[in-house]
Design a binder for these strands. Structure first.
Lengths: 203, 203, 203, 203
DNA sequence: AATGAATGAGATTTCATTCAT
DNA sequence: GATGAATGAAATCTCATTCAT
């Protein structure tokens, strides 16, 4: 007798995963509790039992995801050569969310939607921790003389996060939108590192 | 006798501007017709009179904005040296929307929200024209031997768009979220060009 | 062609009358918006269109009723002999609400349900104005030496209001509860005046 | 080691006391099972274990309270002089509920809320027993020629009950509503007796 | 006797939209 | 062009109640 893989998850986990996926796709307002419970195959009051209300469900998802990302980044040795460090960050982030890429997509989307969630201001700080980790790694590389000083660590990290967020989104859209079909995200980590580390103009 | 600047706009324009601003901030689902008419200081049926319904209002906004961007990009000579070309694109885009930055923010947001708008598939193509212009410019530079070949034009343009979108978002959030206060978007066009054209690692 | 008397009322009035009647019978929490719109024969959103929400509908009803009562009481000359004054108050209150006795019942009920309505504290003051009018009338009679001084104006007015409230309630319950069937409220105003003015003990 | 006084009550008693207090304040519909179990510090199913359902819990409370009142009244000798009898009733009722005044408040409230409880008709009779005791005492006094005959026993008892109910309510509201702060219910039993026995007009 | 988890039904409220004028 | 009034459908959330243990 075949069983759905979902049967392995508790009610709480089912809600979490359905919520992350839907929030990532449709946004906070575009996702209804009914959407979530239908996808999760649970009853409506269970959402309120476990998460209180829609807002708290959303913040729980966001906090959980960003904490996971922060944990992964913190495991990387900040003294590594810069291009190695960069590559490690990309790879470890990718691996961590390999079995649940919706998490990455939601994080990306969250960063681009300043007022979609009514209480954004209460949770925006979770977003700054991984960003700060990257910024201080770049500052360190600058101090060690590894990288040029005409680019600020802040701009660099914003550019990297923007790029990754957009790539995640493109990947997410790939299946359904013809124009993104040709993009292959799987081989591009090396490309990203090269782009950001070495630039594109021939000297 | 002083008059509000809004008095110079027609009802149709008032609705358009209010809609763009709100869609940019709150997203499609997070914006209600009532929000729009309150901000625009018009009555509800006017939206339906001029735009048909909410979906058509949204697509009108998106199409208008992307067409403006495309027009601007098409005016740039694609034979220019790559770093000059890059800088021109950034500057002309910025200037075009200088008096209505919400337009930029909405375009950025739109690109990151694959399923927020129920008929995304009907309008996604407007998004690809400016992207294609950039991709073909890069390809041209590659063909001319200006830039290295280890970076694909596609990745490069995705990275650039992702970066710009994120910067626009950060700018948008700046006033309200402490963590973005220190970022100064006005001086960064040169930095962006340098980052993408020359890379960061010292050779 | 027969028409329901309700057809003469506007939507707003229909809602008001249905709400007063139901709040009087079932209380604030026991009355649902659906109950109200069914009785009023209007659609649900009309309640929100005209009154904002359930709480505001309730406070609107209460304020309207108590203001009517206050207006009636203010028309009575406070210099009248006390038993005449008393009788006038009872009669004018009764007449004012003759065609809409539910209003009286709701006022009575409201006075006995300190926390039934979540924002009681915001509207309790409407209740004190007619009470104060009575208290000061009694004080005046006391000053003029018309009435004994072993009863405080406050207790007297509380007793009178309690009595009237209970009589209104009994009247309200009469039709449905056997035990109140024999009570005839119509002949009792004189009795009430006598009871309060002359007491019951033979001297 | 200090312990909360509540620890002395059984689960059943905890539920009863919490229920009476909440029903008195918020009414039947305004009180939720969750309110009750939170105040009682027990779990939800316990309510159903001990009382069956919310309706039965309510009727249990009402019956218990009115039976206590009836028992108290039955102990008073109906042959006493009327003003003595009256005073005895007031004092003994007050003493009986001295340590649990919420019981008095609930009885008062119950009498003013004809349809708040859906099965009022099933329990309204408990209310008539103490009322009947008073009515027949008055009738007896009338027969003995103690009191005037221009006031019916029924009106008299309604007035007394209305007065007492209102005073109980005022007392209940005292702490929270400024307008009742000055009322002192503790010294007023004598006043009540005088008011009802002797009236207020000087002869 | 007691509990954490679960549920169907229904509560309040808001939505996009339309009608009559 | 423009509006106040109105609506069906669906949103979030809470309710009394029960199940499995």
């Amino acid at each position: 007798m075949e069983r759905d893989i979902k049967d392995n998850f508790s009610v709480r986990e089912k809600i979490y995963r359905a919520a992350v996926e839907l929030f990532a796709r449709k946004g906070y307002s575009g996702t209804t509790i009914r959407n979530i419970v239908q996808k999760a195959e649970v009853t409506q009051p269970m959402v309120y039992y476990y998460y209180g209300n829609k807002e708290q469900l959303f913040t729980s998802c966001i906090k959980e995801l960003y904490n996971q990302l922060t944990t992964v980044y913190q495991k990387i040795d900040p003294e590594l050569p810069f291009d190695i460090l960069l590559k490690k960050m990309l790879i470890s982030g990718k691996e961590k969310f390999a079995d649940f890429p919706e998490g990455l997509f939601l994080m990306a989307r969250f960063a681009y939607s300043p007022d979609e969630f009514p209480r954004m201001i209460d949770i925006i700080h979770v977003f700054s921790t991984p960003l700060d980790l990257l910024i201080s790694a770049i500052q360190k590389a600058k101090n060690k003389g590894e990288i040029v000083d005409y680019v600020s660590p802040q701009l660099f990290s914003f550019a990297l996060f923007g790029t990754l967020g957009f790539l995640a989104t493109v990947h997410f859209m790939k299946d359904r939108f013809e124009i993104f079909k040709s993009m292959d995200i799987d081989v591009s980590i090396d490309e990203i590192v090269k782009l950001f580390a070495y630039g594109v103009l021939k000297k």
